[in-house]
């Protein structure tokens, strides 16, 4: 089982919206040349990458704009391909009714986790205003994927999502599984630090900020970090993610396989860890 835990479906054909909302999606995401992708194309891409499942992330910044991709839209996509898609909810934690929205996402829409973007939504992860959100996730045994490190989205600040900012949250909520998306780049050693100490902290590999996938993965995972750190110590907490369509899903999947990890570590990173993080795969 090969799972990409970090995919944004804003430009998938079944949820294509009117021109104004499509334009807003481009602007809010800072992705300016994405055409609409028929699901058949998405499946072709999965096949080329060798992927079995994609986690589709909703994105809700509704405190100051419309949801980029709503929980309902993600649920609709999952309904079209339940054997390929896993839905992840989103709320704006400062929008009225956000807890009810999240409850509905977990119960009615059966979404499997929550995505939050501290840098875009303007909060530090241990902010007590988020405690009810985290409590709800714990009550439903749902994990949280946090954007961490640099974000290329407009109006987002990296200061909120530096990995070290997550320590208090990991410490205070040891039963809450959290993922530092993008491995917290450029602070990948801080991310590794947290993962070493807190077993409820995961990270995904959705990072391709310079160079080719092969070059950048080699840089981050064999020089900024030692590959042995992943292969020996963190292998149960790293998950494959691509941040597609911003980054290159197929080439990143290939680059992961060329890092020199043990086959058993690759199996964990490709899917076993994601299944555990998500609390099981249907």
């Amino acid at each position: 089982m090969f799972i990409d835990v970090h995919v944004h479906p804003a430009f998938y054909e079944p949820i294509r919206a009117d021109a104004a909302r499509q334009d807003a999606r481009h602007e809010l995401l800072g992705l300016y040349h994405n055409g609409t992708a028929p699901l058949e194309h998405v499946f072709n891409q999965m096949s080329c990458a060798g992927l079995d499942r994609l986690c589709l992330l909703a994105q809700d910044y509704s405190a100051d704009s419309a949801a980029v991709v709503s929980n309902e839209e993600v649920a609709r996509l999952v309904g079209l391909a339940p054997n390929r898609f896993i839905g992840i909810a989103s709320i704006d934690p400062f929008a009225p009714g956000c807890l009810e929205k999240l409850e509905r996402a977990f119960t009615e829409h059966r979404l499997r986790g929550l995505k939050l973007h501290p840098g875009r939504q303007g909060f530090y992860p241990p902010d007590p205003r988020l405690d009810p959100v985290y409590a709800l996730c714990e009550r439903h045994d749902r994990p949280v994927i946090f954007h961490s490190g640099l974000s290329l989205e407009p109006d987002s600040l990296a200061k909120y999502s530096r990995p070290a900012e997550f320590e208090e949250l990991a410490y205070r909520h040891p039963k809450l599984r959290i993922c530092l998306a993008h491995f917290g780049w450029p602070w990948v050693q801080e991310a590794a630090m947290l993962m070493l100490k807190y077993r409820n902290v995961y990270a995904d590999t959705a990072l391709l900020y310079f160079d080719s996938a092969k070059e950048f993965y080699a840089r981050v995972f064999t020089r900024d970090l030692e590959i042995t750190w992943i292969d020996r110590s963190l292998r149960h907490q790293v998950m494959f993610g691509s941040d597609n369509p911003r980054f290159e899903q197929i080439r990143m999947a290939r680059a992961l396989g060329e890092l020199g990890l043990r086959e058993s570590s690759l199996e964990l990173i490709k899917g076993v860890n994601a299944a555990e993080f998500l609390g099981g795969i249907d």
């Binding site: 995401l29 800072g30 992705l31 300016y32 040349h33 994405n34 290329l152 391709l208 900020y209 310079f210 160079d211 080719s212 996938a213 092969k214 070059e215 369509p245 911003r246 980054f247 290159e248 080439r251």
Partner: peptide
């Protein structure tokens, strides 16, 4: 595939990588 191409980078006008 594996030569060091200059085009392997983020394109700001796209907001995505040119792989």
């Amino acid at each position: 595939e594996d030569l060091p191409y200059s085009h392997a980078r983020i394109l700001p006008s796209y907001g995505s990588t040119a792989g």
